[in-house]
Measured scan of single mutants.
Amino acid sequence: NKFNKELGWATWEIFNLPNLNGVQVKAFIDSLRDDPSQSANLLAEAKKLNDAQA
């Protein structure tokens, strides 16, 4: 379904953000699993944090 596809894509993108540490990645992935409907918002937050830590 739509959420599974978005969840998978967001998970892959978060895993590939180079400036996040393992704890941050795990926290974002756990949040995605808790509420897949928020995948776009969580991915945006992860990208912002990644950019801030560059």
Rank of each mutant, 00 (worst) to 15 (best):
L7D: 07
K47D: 01
S31P: 01
D34P: 00
T11E: 15
V23F: 13
F3P: 11
I29N: 01
S37P: 02
D34C: 13
W9R: 13
N21S: 14
E6D: 10
A46K: 00
N41T: 12
S37G: 08
A52C: 11
N4V: 10
K26T: 07
K2M: 11
T11N: 06
Q38V: 04
G8Q: 14
D35S: 05
L20R: 00
G22R: 11
W9N: 11
V25T: 05
L17H: 01
A52I: 12
S39M: 13
Q38C: 13
Q24C: 03
I29L: 13
F15P: 02
V23A: 15
N1E: 12
G22C: 15
T11Y: 14
N4R: 05
Q38S: 10
N21Q: 06
D34T: 09
L43R: 02
A40K: 11
F28D: 00
L42A: 03
L20C: 02
L17I: 01
F3E: 13
E45Y: 06
K5P: 13
S37H: 05
A54P: 04
N19V: 01
A52H: 09
L32R: 00
R33T: 09
N16T: 08
G8N: 13
P18Q: 06
K5Y: 10
L49Y: 03
S31Y: 09
E13I: 14
G22E: 14
D30W: 03
S31D: 04
N21E: 05
A40I: 10
D51E: 12
Q24L: 02
I14F: 05
N19A: 05
L20G: 00
A40V: 11
I14C: 08
G8E: 15
A54K: 09
A44K: 09
L49Q: 04
D34W: 08
D30M: 06
A40L: 11
L7K: 02
N4Q: 13
K5D: 15
Q38K: 08
K5W: 12
N16Y: 06
A46L: 03
A40T: 07
W12P: 03
G8A: 15
A52K: 09
N19E: 03
N1L: 06
A54S: 09
P18I: 06
N16G: 07
D35M: 04
A10E: 08
L32F: 03
N4W: 15
G8C: 15
K26C: 15
N41H: 10
A46Y: 04
A27M: 13
K47E: 03
E6I: 10
A46H: 01
F15V: 14
N16S: 08
P36S: 03
W9K: 13
S39P: 02
L7A: 07
S37T: 09
G22K: 11
F15R: 07
N21G: 05
N50V: 01
I14P: 02
V25Y: 03
N4K: 05
V23L: 12
Q24S: 01
A46E: 00
K5E: 15
F28P: 00
V25A: 04
G22D: 12
K5T: 14
N21L: 13
K2F: 09
Q24F: 02
E6G: 06
D51N: 07
N4A: 11
G22T: 10
K48M: 09
D35E: 05
N16V: 04
S31G: 09
D51I: 09
P36W: 05
N21K: 07
A44S: 11
S37F: 04
A44H: 09
V25G: 00
D30R: 10
N1P: 14
L49D: 01
L20Q: 00
K5C: 15
V25D: 00
N50C: 05
K26N: 06
A10C: 14
F3C: 15
F15M: 15
K48C: 13
N1H: 11
Q24H: 03
Q38Y: 04
A46P: 00
S37W: 05
T11W: 14
K5A: 11
G22L: 13
N50G: 02
G8Y: 15
Q38P: 01
W12E: 15
N41S: 11
L32H: 00
P18N: 05
E13Q: 12
S31Q: 14
L43F: 04
L43I: 09
L49P: 01
D35W: 07
N4Y: 11
Q53S: 04
Q38A: 08
D34S: 12
L7G: 03
D35R: 05
A10M: 10
D30L: 05
N21A: 05
A46C: 03
N50W: 03
L49G: 01
A10Q: 05
W12I: 11
W12H: 15
V23D: 11
W9D: 13
N50F: 02
E13G: 02
I29H: 02
G8K: 14
Q38F: 12
K47L: 06
K5L: 05
L20V: 01
Q53N: 05
P18W: 04
W12M: 14
L20H: 00
G22W: 14
N1D: 14
D30T: 10
Q53D: 02
F3T: 13
A52V: 10
E45C: 12
A46M: 05
N19Y: 13
L42R: 03
L32Q: 01
L49C: 09
Q38M: 08
W12S: 13
L7E: 07
A27W: 13
S31K: 14
E13C: 14
V25L: 07
Q38R: 13
A44Y: 09
R33N: 12
V23P: 09
A46W: 02
F3R: 11
K47C: 07
V23R: 10
F28E: 00
D51T: 08
N50H: 02
V23K: 12
L7Q: 05
P18E: 06
A10L: 07
L43V: 14
N4T: 10
A52L: 12
S39D: 03
Q38N: 14
P18L: 10
Q38I: 06
E13W: 13
